[in-house]
């Protein structure tokens, strides 16, 4: 079953006085995702439409957009499931705009890498399974796919442009929780400031929009608990 859906798409080219919206109508079936619809627009209607995409299955994190005002990975949002005759598509917020639906991820990655989290972690799936000969333990990639949805949804990032942000602090917590090549002290020191974990106002929007089970809000709160705990101990003269 194919249905004609209108997309109201955020447009901006460098040198434009201001952004505007363009409307495109695209036939969508039950498999059509918002990402595919955007690619169809680029192929059939406007080859200048800019967007980021790569894996098409919620693993790379490049296709994050605001769809009807909500941060989503466009590759896993089926157009007809949205149930609206018009679908509004906008770039992520709290990141500098490059053009159309593309934002500059430099600042995001500067923060994210500063946490120094190794990307390979121990796999917790199938906990009873014995690894085969030659493999010490099963490993897997970290959950975070660096999509930036959390940063876009965060009300604090909107009011403090230096805020470290949810993804970076979730990475810091992982570096503390499973240190691997270090003791996590660097990550704890790094978040312990006014643009770090104490800036969070506990709106939980990061965890609401996270498409990859990271739960950044819990990570930030865990960092706080750890820091509060060691401050209290220091207060009583106990060093750890």
């Amino acid at each position: 079953m194919t249905k004609e859906i209108t997309f109201k798409v955020f447009r901006y080219k460098q040198g434009d006085p201001a952004p505007h919206y363009d409307r495109f109508t695209v036939p969508c079936d039950e498999n059509t995702t918002v990402l595919i619809a955007m690619q169809d627009i680029r192929r059939d209607q406007d080859p200048t439409l800019m967007l980021r995409h790569s894996c098409h299955h919620a693993s790379c994190g490049t296709c994050g957009m605001r769809i009807n005002g909500k941060e989503e990975l466009s590759c896993v949002v089926k157009v007809l499931d949205l149930g609206t005759p018009t679908v509004t598509v906008e770039p992520l917020e709290n990141l500098p705009l490059i053009s159309d639906l593309v934002v500059d991820m430099t600042g995001f990655y500067q923060r994210y890498t500063a946490a120094r989290m190794p990307y390979i972690r121990q796999s917790e799936f199938n906990p009873g399974a014995e690894p085969p000969e030659g493999i010490d333990r099963y490993t897997r990639y970290e959950n975070c796919i660096e999509c930036g949805l959390c940063l876009s949804a965060c009300p604090v990032a909107g009011s403090d442009a230096e805020y470290l942000g949810p993804a970076a602090m979730a990475a810091a917590w992982r570096a503390v929780e499973e240190p691997r090549n270090g003791d996590g002290k660097h990550a704890l020191n790094w978040v312990d400031n006014e643009h770090g974990c104490w800036r969070c106002h506990i709106a939980f929007e990061c965890s609401e929009v996270c498409p990859s089970n990271v739960d950044p809000a819990a990570g930030i709160m865990n960092l706080r608990r750890k820091l509060t705990g060691s401050s209290l101990l220091r207060l009583f003269g106990i060093k750890r």
């Binding site: 952004p19 990141l95 230096e162 942000g165």
Partner: peptide
């Protein structure tokens, strides 16, 4: 503090209260 790019977007400036 650290050397990181601002998350402020000059094309879409955000009012903190609105955030």
């Amino acid at each position: 503090m650290q050397d990181v790019q601002s998350t402020q977007d000059t094309v879409r400036p955000k009012r903190p209260l609105l955030a």
